[in-house]
Design a protein around this nucleic acid. Structure first.
Lengths: 240, 240
DNA sequence: CACGTTGTTCCGCGTCACGGAACAAAGTTT
DNA sequence: AAACTTTGTTCCGTGACGCGGAACAACGTG
């Protein structure tokens, strides 16, 4: 029963949009009657909300999700540096961690000019075609790199790197320079520069700046990104 | 069974901290064997995580919680204005909505100097002793005000207003000026100024700036808060 | 070594989840 | 307006499986 309830809730990912009962039934593969009963229970618990005949994720989930410790602590520690980075660049700033072979975004900060990006807080994208992902991958050990390279490389745009050798070279450059670059691999017209965050000898996160291709100037962005990443690393080292 | 699982998950609120099996059992009132079995299921689903003998909330909850539509949309729309406000004041900035007789915080932005505040993203506080809460309460209709005033007023510090008449007058002033003030009512040594956000004729949120009492200067903060709140209201009106 | 505490496993009982099927409600087509 | 499609809701007999007391194991402590 828990499994079925989880299936229903997770069927809202990644769109999150409101669904009708029959959509949920189709989407989960569960009989209508079953979804109906479970959805009613979930509404009662505040995990789903219902307006008219549509279901959406409920407020209780937001509250619980905000309490997840590892995410909370890291975000809290990183926020000031993300602010610095935003203020220095006035561009869209990301904070992400690795989860398996994906990057999960913990924070995303932007101004009035909102880029059209596939990244969402709480959402995951392939490690291989995002700036944050490449920064994480480059510093997460050779085994993981080989694991990732041994499989077909996913792509988000026609510019996404799908050639393992090209990616291997890019990662090598990243390891040397401490910076990962990404040009239109995650979204058309958007470039990105990212840097890893270390704590206790391992790579715990990465942060990045995403910029419209037109005004992408690595020489100006690189120091800011590097500074923010190092600053956060230092705080994490000290604070625990 | 869903109820029991929900009880377990919600027992992590508000501390979120890691709990041992027996703590969970005590905290939820459920038999140890039951908690053991359910916790194992929840771990399998990714809703809980387990390190050693300790349980904490799991990554899946963070992902799901980040998708909750109403919260997501409002946060996204508000973020640029919160950034403006932060940049203008360089102080801790809040975004909150009303939920029953509480304020729930959707976002909280700060720099390196982190104030010691009771507010947490996803957490809730009484409407009556926070800046955001008072701004929401003042513009949420007379019925709600009377409802709140008819009960004993909760307090977070010795400075929290507990006299219904004083609060009623403060709310009246807020309605006239469009700004809510709060001095050491939520945390000692911290003052706050807040403004409501309107959309479609109703109050949908409020935002605030929290400042160490020593450098609290309403004359400088008020225009910034008002500007941000009005800007957000305008965007929400236009965009839907 | 005895003892309290906490985590884990077992298993018989009985409950409650299950979902097909019938029904109701709301649109859509002819 | 009637026939039809689709979607939401209710019912209920069956039986799977959740339940939790109790016994056991694994530590840590005095």
């Amino acid at each position: 029963m828990l499994d079925k309830a989880a299936t229903i809730l997770e069927s809202f990912s990644p769109s999150g949009g409101p669904y009708r009962l029959s959509e949920l039934s189709e989407r989960t593969g569960l009989p209508k009657a079953t979804v109906h009963r479970l959805a009613a229970d979930l509404v009662r618990l505040g995990w789903l909300e219902r307006s008219g005949t549509r279901y959406r994720l409920g407020a209780k989930l937001f509250e619980l999700g905000s309490l997840v410790p590892h995410r909370l602590d890291l975000r809290e520690a990183a926020l000031p540096f993300l602010q610095d980075l935003f203020e220095a660049t006035r561009e869209t700033v990301h904070l992400g961690i690795r989860e398996g072979m994906d990057v999960v975004y913990l924070e995303r900060i932007h101004g009035h000019e909102a880029l059209q990006l596939p990244s969402r807080i709480g959402g995951s994208l392939p490690l291989t075609c995002t700036g944050v992902g490449k920064a994480l991958l480059a510093f997460s050990g050779a085994e993981l790199t080989e694991e990732v390279l041994s499989r077909p490389l996913p792509s988000l745009t026609p510019h996404s790197i799908t050639d393992p050798n090209r990616l291997r070279m890019a990662l090598e450059k990243t390891r040397v320079s401490g910076l990962a670059y990404e040009e239109q691999e995650a979204a058309l017209g958007v470039s990105c520069i990212a840097a890893p965050v270390f704590a206790g000898g391992t790579t715990v996160a990465a942060l990045s700046v995403a910029v419209p291709r037109a005004r992408f100037s690595p020489a100006q962005l690189a120091p800011a990104v590097r500074t923010a990443a190092l600053g956060l690393s230092r705080v994490l080292r000290g604070g625990g």
